[in-house]
């Protein structure tokens, strides 16, 4: 690689990493240091901000709430989308293409459109302010997305494989769980990643459908700015902790992601 190419890459890396570094640097600084003089490195590193988060129920419960609804959402999305995508990829039925397209159109509306109906509906049936409410609302977006991603991968698996399992004498359940799902691990990894990411970072529905009880972390972060003035350090620490689950998910599905993003080029 040429010298200038290397420099451009390095500059790009700095550009990508700088905000993360700054966030981390703030998270281990005191408020006085943050608003004081400019420092490239924290003058007096401290873990007080993290301690505050792990000792204050407003913070750690918010993390718990977020993780709960993200988990429920991912679980429902995969549980519903895997059979649906299989059906779309394997069977021709009346209106299958229209149904598939209709699923996708759900994804085209901005979440804000659904705020009012969801709020009203959930209030009426007592679902308001629960992690389940947020998880279900997010399903409206993650399920179509999941079906769409999975259908592409499932269609890449030849139907003959399904038939061969039958000819070998295996039940459908055996084939599906022991053959079909394992060979689509990459696809499921990618789908899981997208569901998680959507649900974890989504703010609008999460804020509207939760009150005091099920308040998610993204909401607590935005409210802290206005409520308690400028607690920069704690806010930055919360930011660091919010980035972590995403990193963890990517870490665990990284091999499948590589395969999955290759989109069928790896058989």
């Amino acid at each position: 690689m040429s010298r200038s190419g290397r420099w451009i890459l390095c500059a790009y890396l700095v550009y990508l990493v700088l905000p993360l570094y700054w966030l981390f640097s703030m998270a281990i600084s005191s408020n006085a240091d943050i608003v004081g003089e400019f420092n490239a490195f924290p003058a007096a590193p401290t873990l007080a901000n993290f301690a505050e988060i792990f000792s204050n129920p407003v913070w750690y419960q918010a993390f718990g709430n977020s993780l709960t609804y993200v988990f429920i959402n991912t679980l429902i999305s995969l549980a519903v989308a895997i059979p649906a995508a299989y059906a779309f990829s394997r069977y021709r039925f009346l209106g299958d293409k229209q149904l598939f397209f209709w699923l996708l159109t759900n994804r085209m509306a901005p979440p804000a459109v659904f705020l009012l109906p969801f709020f009203q509906l959930y209030s009426a049936i007592g679902l308001f302010d629960t992690p389940l409410a947020v998880a279900l609302a997010h399903c409206l977006f993650t399920v179509p997305l999941s079906v769409w991603i999975l259908e592409g991968f499932f269609s890449g698996v030849p139907t003959e494989l399904d038939e061969m399992a039958q000819l070998d004498g295996h039940s459908f359940g055996y084939f599906f769980l022991r053959v079909f799902l394992p060979i689509n691990r990459g696809a499921i990894g990618v789908t899981l990643f997208f569901c998680f990411m959507f649900s974890w970072v989504e703010l609008l529905l999460a804020r509207t459908l939760s009150g005091a009880e099920a308040k998610p972390i993204v909401v607590v972060m935005t409210r802290t700015v206005s409520a308690s003035g400028l607690d920069w350090g704690v806010l930055a620490a919360a930011g660091v902790l919010t980035v972590l689950p995403g990193v963890l998910v990517v870490w665990f599905v990284r091999k499948d992601l590589v395969k999955g993003f290759a989109l069928g080029r790896v058989s």
């Binding site: 030849p158 003959e160 494989l161 038939e163 061969m164 399992a165 039958q166 000819l167 070998d168 004498g169 295996h170 039940s171 053959v179 394992p182 060979i183 058989s267």
Partner: peptide, 27 residues
């Protein structure tokens, strides 16, 4: 097909991609 005494070899090479050769034959 599951309960027929019929075996079949397809034109395309169809094997269980997640199983070893031995597991495939044993299937």
């Amino acid at each position: 097909p599951r309960h027929r005494p019929v075996a079949m070899v397809y034109q395309a090479f169809i094997n269980y991609p997640n199983l070893t050769v031995a597991e495939n034959i044993a299937s």
